[in-house]
Write a protein that binds this DNA or RNA. Structure first.
Length: 588
RNA sequence: GCCGACAUAGCUUAGUGGUAAAGCAAGUCAUUGGUAAUGACUAGACAUGAGUUCGAUUCUCAUUGUCGGCUCCA
């Protein structure tokens, strides 16, 4: 079934190419593979096309499909194939690549008068292609390399039935609604300013509240687990990064140095060297290890402008960073403990293992000495430790990825999926056997001899910016109580109830609840609507009934309602406070 | 950075070679309300800079930023 769908999408991509050649005969063809949820085809057009042309192309595709063309596979020798594609330079390149791989023949698929070099996986006839839609148009480098020409990529999707296609398109619409950039604007969590600069988010008091709660949570949790929270400057001499060896690997993504007096300073792109210098400020005994320095560390990275996305990808971010200095024999346990912390953090945030996040074991390539430090034995050792931990603790939740390591060692990345299914690294645990050497980090062992520790770099909650983006999308802005910027809104029904409402608001505030009073001269319904749209968890409605009964009983009543529109009825303020405090405490 | 698209009030959108319309939000007044929008009125915008033009928000170019991708992601 799955393969049938892929074949259909593949045939649909050929249908697209056939239509393009009909409409724009001199177009050069790239490749047209199936991807998750659809397909694309890359073209080099004589003249640029735009989104408006897509419907015309779809029309042409329908015409060709309607001819009920048989899709026929043929085998050709390399020589023959080259002749067939002599007007298609990209295809010719592909044929040459196949020749280099030792292929003697290649296959073509033909529908009507359109014939295309293709490995296959196709339907038998164009009439079997289901309803399709061209979704977008974008630039893409030939063979994915920015040194190659930029082609025009047309994305499309195809489903067996119109209903499934419509559902898929509806899902994309839904994903747009959950987009953290949209919700961030609607709920006034953060904003950007052209003058401040791109990739530099400004958090409003509401966004800052979420950030502060996350910070408090993680610092408290780390302190419980024996981390030492430190503070180091977000600026350093360039030399620091030259010693660390980061400089040559990452100078493209660092901000340029600024000259101050005789020194060159740089905004730090990572915190490791700072923590190393802190470590080196005193001699260490094997008895102290592991030493765990943690910091809420601001870092600066010059991300390419096209890469910036809301809070997901920014140019200054704050990482819940830590560096653990350990004896080699402690490394495994240290990593286990880190994974345990990460699992705990994710559980509190409501992220589900396997569904919302997975572990990725990111390995180095022994032969890529440009990208990775050369020490095969150390790499083998480090990778096997990480793999072992994952196998023992998270066998069903991890996968391996080649060529994704840091230059100083392999790592475990926590990959979180966003609503559109796009994966990002949220947190990361890195095993480092290189930097301790570079910085000559040492400890004294039980025999009084100097030894070199290993360092585990890790992030427990990732960058606050990025985790906020995930949480906004996950909760659609309806955060759990402990993270909600406004936890309760007090709504007086009429002006007569204003004084009493102010008193209730004050009581809630004094109890540490983030309460707000809506004292505008609006109707109660309008206030309820607005608070609900702002995803405020609890609404306390106060009218004459509550006020009069409160005076009679010498108590404070409110009429309680949840943002889900569930009516909790009359509630005493003191019991409301206890209820909320408990919910906040348990981070529900 | 690259390819393509886009930029109108706090937000969402309309529109034009003769300086602009609406809804929501905001302010004022009236209304004193019982669980998702009370009514009236007021104020508020063509991203920035150049060019073409009698005249540019509209056309051209540049800049800045945004979006969809590519590339990248310590």
């Amino acid at each position: 079934m799955e393969n049938k769908l892929n074949d259909m999408r593949h045939s649909c991509s050929h249908l697209l190419a056939a239509a393009i050649l009909k409409l724009y005969p001199n177009t050069k063809l790239g490749i047209g593979p199936v991807i998750e949820n659809g397909f694309y085809y890359d073209f080099q057009f004589e003249n640029p096309i735009s989104e408006e042309d897509l419907s015309e192309i779809e029309e042409e595709m329908r015409k060709i499909k309607g001819q009920n063309l048989h899709i026929k596979k043929t085998e050709h020798s390399i020589e023959e194939a080259k002749r067939l594609e002599e007007n298609q330079p990209f295809k010719a390149q592909l044929i040459e690549d196949l020749e280099k791989d030792g292929k003697k023949t290649v296959s073509f698929y033909t529908m009507g008068d359109f014939s295309d070099l293709c490995e296959g996986g196709h339907l038998d006839n164009t009439k079997e292609i289901g309803p399709f839609k061209l979704t977008s148009i974008a630039g893409a480098y030939w063979k994915g390399s920015e040194k190659n020409p930029m082609l025009t990529r047309i994305y499309g999707t195809c489903f067996p039935t119109q209903k499934e296609l419509d559902e898929h398109l509806a899902l994309l619409e839904e994903a747009k609604k959950r987009d953290h950039r949209k919700i961030g604007k609607d709920l006034e969590l953060f904003t950007f300013s052209d003058l401040v600069g791109k990739g530099l988010p400004l958090l409003t008091h509401k966004g800052a509240t979420i950030r502060r709660e996350l910070e408090r949570f993680i610092v408290d949790e780390e302190l419980k687990r024996g981390y030492l929270h430190v503070i180091t400057p977000p600026l350093a001499k360039v030399d620091l990064y030259k010693v660390s060896g980061h400089y040559p690997y990452y100078k493209d993504t660092m901000y340029p140095p600024m000259k101050v007096d005789e020194e060159e300073l740089i905004l730090r792109p990572m915190t490791c060297p700072h923590h190393f210098m802190l470590y080196k400020s005193q001699p260490h005994s094997y008895r102290e290890l592991p030493i765990k320095y943690a910091e809420l560390a601001s870092q600066f990275r010059y991300e390419k402008s096209g890469e910036l996305t809301g809070l997901m990808r920014v140019r200054m971010f704050t990482l819940s960073d830590a560096h653990i200095f350990a004896r080699l024999e402690q490394a495994k346990k240290v990593i286990e403990e880190v994974l345990d912390l990460i699992d705990y953090v994710n559980k509190v945030l409501g992220l589900e293992k396997g569904k919302d996040y997975k572990y990725r074991l990111s390995l180095g390539d022994r032969n890529n000495e440009k990208k990775y430090y050369k020490d095969d034995a150390a790499w083998n050792k480090a990778e096997s430790i990480l793999r072992e931990v994952l196998k023992e603790t998270n066998a069903q939740y991890f996968y391996e990825a080649a060529n994704e390591a840091a230059f100083y060692g392999p790592k475990i990345d926590v990959q979180v999926k966003n609503v559109i299914g796009k994966e990002e690294t949220a947190f990361t645990v890195q095993y480092d056997f290189v930097l301790p050497k570079r910085f000559k980090l040492t400890y004294t062992d039980e025999n009084g001899k100097e030894q070199e520790p290993v360092v585990v770099h890790r992030s427990s909650l990732g960058a606050f910016e990025r985790i906020m983006a995930f949480l906004i999308e996950k909760y659609k802005g309806a955060f759990p109580l402990w993270l909600s910027p406004i936890q309760a809104v007090v709504i007086p029904i009429s002006e007569k109830n204003l004084n009493f409402a102010q008193k209730v608001d004050k009581m809630l505030k004094n109890a540490g609840i983030r309460s707000q009073i809506d004292d505008r001269d609006e109707r109660m319904q309008a206030k309820i609507r607005e608070a609900t749209l702002q995803k405020v968890p609890y609404l306390c409605i106060i009218g004459n009934k509550e006020q009069e009964d409160s005076e009679k009983d010498n108590a404070q009543y409110v009429c309680l309602r949840k943002r889900s529109s569930e009516d909790l009825g009359r509630t005493e303020v003191s019991s409301l406070i206890n209820k909320l405090k408990e919910e906040i405490e348990n981070r529900l």
